[in-house]
Design a protein around this nucleic acid. Structure first.
Lengths: 341, 341
DNA sequence: ATTTAGCACTCTAACCATGAGAGTGCTGAA
DNA sequence: TTCAGCACTCTCATGGTTAGAGTGCTAAAT
């Protein structure tokens, strides 16, 4: 559909534009040693490319810049991705390793990604509904206060302090914990909640008042557990201040607002969740007018072959895809490998 | 030192400037009903005020704007603070109450403050060194993995998963926990660490290898506990995008960088930690050239009369002190009262 | 002794004209 | 098919001009 010469010129135009950020004219291209054509011939080709919708001219006497379709074509069939150096991979590994919980690990991944790419990163958190309850424990704090410790997936610990109506002895607490462990360990949060509702009738009859109030308090903790969490993390927002294409503070505000509003971003991350491998969304494909001029690169992370969430970066469409895509990819892989353990 | 008429004019000038953000000229002031002077007379007074260093002229044909000294004078002796409405107070209370841990409460306070003032807020976290250890507990996770639960100050729960060299039975863990509780509960983190080092010799002799390795793992958790935490939280950074006086993206970057660099801000928050009541830092007083044109309003929060940390906001010097100061003050008071419990 | 009207002066911001520079499309020759 | 040449268009930087805002000073009025 596109002859070799057109491709060559388009690729060179992209290269120059990604580096300089200024419209590229026919003379600039003609001067490149690998081209070997006069500027007039280049002009003819550029004119074709413009008719095809791959490039456009901001105004008559400026050079050409890629259109969204141009970016799309470039990303789909021209970019040669550059593998990360051993050293960079080691650096990521080193920065992610000292994390103690799943949440912390994901937060680190987000930081690493925004630091490495110089853009803004986001990490879609695993669906808490599907986290599997591994252990319940109660710690008496004296008086009526009890610390509830919930362990999910061997990595994620949550705790809440609850107040009972009357004091509970350690042995009573132990007994209740044993009961709850028997009933709910191995279930995910949603199942546990459903089960609790279902069996409440039976439980009421078989337990004394004290144990019942502990169970009820635990139920409310489980419920809160579900909604309370942020759906995704965002790091390095301020990195976007570095790009002049986003220098307008109206534009930035709109972007930041969109991050907080959640709906756009969740939509996108959800799409990526269902796809395999790295996805690149360019401009309008991001699903909102606001993202004109921006691109989003995402990829899912997983554990034991099951997709848990998505991580990615937002930046100007004029980004170095050949570097950013592998960076996102590798970070997701390393994250996945660390989650496995 | 300043006659009534000068004060009246200065106050009105400040009022107009705070609202409009544009230099105020003699005619504008003369037109105000409460002035009752000709613009010529006003000009004479303004000239005096300029000589005293309270106001300045950006250029010949613009009006006057306050200098930093002008702001200082205004804040120190002219502002009449507006008490918050009952409704606003109730709103703060409602937004802060549903917090489960100390950290969460402080994070909420920061959010509330940035939301209410429309500026950026920061909260200096309590000194972790001085948190008192209330309870240590171990939960066996099967295999060699043990969950360490540390409870501080009845509100702050921390946990870490540690891996032992060999499996430990629940009773062995219980025994170790009992020992550690006996030794360290009631001490603060720094004391606990010192004590551990001091007694290590004795402990080595009196305990078996397993218990020893648990103690050592706990020690490393205590150590991490000390450094790992952020010294302060920042919320609502993006609010600063709304102010045209900060619209320049260089300026914003410098500010955001300063928030991440910690040193400037910590210096300032530390100063506020030692002072009583609300403090206002204007421009240069913030301790860095970067904060030219910005002011910082801080106040300590406390529990049982002991100062724990500081909270405050950063915004343009042209802020409504009469509202912001009470807002910071009340938020700190409410936060303090919730921490007490 | 104050206050104020009047006036000359200064500076900014907006507007317009101008020209250099960059890049284009088209045409006709190689 | 390629390309040199040329007329054309548009932006951007520059400089000049003007209206408007605000000042300081002086001399008259209170």
């Amino acid at each position: 559909m596109l002859n070799d010469r057109s491709q060559l010129l388009f690729k060179n135009l992209m290269g120059l534009y990604l580096n300089e950020g200024k419209p590229v004219g026919s003379t600039t291209l003609a001067k490149l040693p690998e081209i070997g054509l006069s500027s007039a011939t280049v002009r003819n080709v550029l004119s074709d490319l413009e008719n095809m919708g791959l490039i456009q001219s901001p105004h008559t006497s400026a050079g050409r810049i890629p259109t969204e379709m141009g970016y799309r074509f470039f990303v789909d069939s021209m970019v040669t991705y550059q593998p990360l150096s051993k050293k960079n991979i080691a650096t990521i590994q080193r920065q992610l390793s000292p994390a103690f919980s799943q949440d912390e690990l994901l937060a680190h991944a987000s930081k690493v990604l925004s630091g490495m790419t110089g853009m803004t990163s986001m990490v879609l958190m695993p669906n808490k509904e599907r986290e599997i309850l591994k252990h319940i424990d109660f710690v008496s704090l004296g008086g009526n206060r009890v610390l509830v410790v919930l362990l999910f997936n061997d990595q994620d610990v949550q705790n809440r302090i609850i107040e009972l109506e009357e004091a509970a002895s350690p042995s009573e607490l132990q007994q209740t914990a044993n009961f709850l462990n028997e009933q709910f360990v191995g279930k995910n949060l949603a199942e546990a909640k459903a089960l609790l509702v279902e069996r409440m009738q039976t439980i009421r009859q078989s337990m004394n008042r004290l144990m019942l109030s502990v169970v009820e308090a635990t139920d409310s903790v489980l419920t809160q557990q579900l909604d309370q969490k942020l759906p995704y993390l965002v790091s390095g927002k301020t990195n976007l201040l570095n790009y002049q294409e986003l220098a307008d503070s109206e534009k930035l505000r709109a972007l930041f607002d969109s991050f907080e509003k959640h709906s756009d971003m969740l939509n996108l991350l959800d799409k990526s969740l269902k796809a395999k491998g790295v996805q690149v969304f360019i401009g309008n494909e991001c699903g909102n007018e606001i993202y004109r001029g921006c691109s989003i690169v995402t990829t899912p992370y997983e554990v034991d072959g099951e997709v848990l969430g998505v991580l990615g970066v937002v930046g100007p469409s004029r980004m170095h895809y050949e570097k950013v895509v592998p960076e996102v990819d590798v970070t997701a892989k390393i994250l996945s490998s660390l989650l496995k353990k």
